[in-house]
Amino acid sequence: MRIGDYKESYAADEAVFSTPTSRFWLGVLFAAMAAFPFFAGDYLLYMANITGIAIVAALGLNILTGATGQISLGHAAFIGIGAYTSAILTNRFGLPYLLCLPLAGLAAAFFGILVGAPSMRMKGLYLCITTLAAQVIFEFLFVHWETLTGGIRGLNVPAPEVFGLKIDSEFSFYWITAVVVIIAATVSRNLFRTRMGRAFIAIRDRDISAELMGINLFRYKLYAFAISSFLAGIAGSLWVGHLRSITPEHFPLHESIRYLAMIIVGGLGNILGAIYGAIFMTMIPELLQSVLKYFESMFPQAMAFLFPLQTVVFGLLIVVFLVFEPHGLAEIWCRIKNFFRLWPFKH
């Protein structure tokens, strides 16, 4: 039980992990993350890796859509741009993976700025449709620019090498994912402690008065597009390093929608929410799969329903959360925490 909130300086008040308790739990989290791969098997490590990649992408979308309020239906396309950039740089130029990673982010950020540029003059639905157009156009390019992307057959890349070590197992890739996730989460958190993050939220809440408060709307929307697609590009590069092959099928519109579902289920504009949402939405297909496996003995074709059932569940989660729990899992978590904070002295 802990009560009260006493701090001696404004610096302490501004710190993110300000109490010994929260610092303790952060330490526990890091320790658990470090110990995890030594106990987990390949399947769990695989899950951890794809969850980590989803977290990085969701953190990106959370900045653009959750915090700045610009709906993007093209997030998967930006992940795709990062993935293709990374694969092409590896295959054609033999660049080391640790260099491909940021370059993939930069390439995606460049296209993010391009797609965000019309936001100077339009907003809301019109911008949302522009991102839909970007999704459709990039998907078309992934399929049809065969000399660059390999068309529908896609591209294969060799296992990445880092400091002379071949990263060719779930275990070794886990460390890369973990480090990138920690960096992405830290950077996101920092963003919202400074003027840039405040400007984003102000634009979402009331764009007109934000401008009257001295915020250059166009510049900050472009920043949001750039940071968001940079993280998407990084996620794409991780994807390539992990899977070692890409095809256009990996980045369709419903993948963009899946990322939107993550940040909604987690809690729009909330960093922890994006993380919870990514974890939750990555687990769902696995959960469904085990449920269907259980029924397979009674209904032999149960597995055929996996994909459509996933689609239904994703849709239902979006609707149910928006109608009943618009602040998402993050808010639910807070309620649970607050309940236990004063427990058992509730009243």
């Binding site: 950077v187 915020i215 940071i227």
Partner: peptide
């Protein structure tokens, strides 16, 4: 906002 100077990189780090 308008009186603060920190840029994108300062902010992220």
């Amino acid at each position: 906002h308008a009186h603060l100077k920190s840029g994108l990189l300062d902010t992220l780090l």
